[in-house]
């Protein structure tokens, strides 16, 4: 996504695409504002390009922790009633959602 210096980094098409991936619908003025915002953020982050990272392993986690497990032991689940409380719609013990066919 990061192109040559000085040029626009983010286009409205990029924002439209990201919005569609995130299932967000945007009005035209929101689209324009978000494109500017993202542009500013990426310009700010571009500072990082000045750092020489050739000899540094990519970082996936910042916590000094590894190998955190749980034993394979059962714990009580929610009751169905409790689980379904968060359902916007339900039907015979199922969560009911608008029809989706992939």
């Amino acid at each position: 996504m990061i192109k040559t210096k000085g040029s626009k980094i983010v286009t409205q098409d990029d924002v439209r695409y990201i919005a569609s991936l995130s299932r967000i619908s945007l009005r035209d003025e929101e689209m324009a504002r978000l494109t500017r915002n993202l542009e500013d953020i990426l310009h700010y982050v571009r500072k990082l390009e000045e750092v020489d990272v050739r000899h540094i392993e990519p970082t996936s986690h910042v916590l000094p922790l590894k190998n955190v497990y749980r034993e394979d032991r059962m714990r009580p689940s929610l009751t169905r009633e409790d689980a379904l409380q968060i359902a916007v719609q339900q039907h015979e013990g199922f969560f009911k959602v608008p029809k989706v066919i992939q």
């Binding site: 955190v68 394979d72 968060i86 199922f94």
Partner: peptide, 24 residues
């Protein structure tokens, strides 16, 4: 029966954290 073995973690409720099952 449906939705009889779910909890806040596998339902993805906010504020929950997954922890890996060692046996898996």
């Amino acid at each position: 029966e449906p939705n009889a073995q779910v909890c806040p973690v596998c339902l993805g409720l906010p504020g929950t954290l997954p922890v890996l099952n060692k046996k898996a």
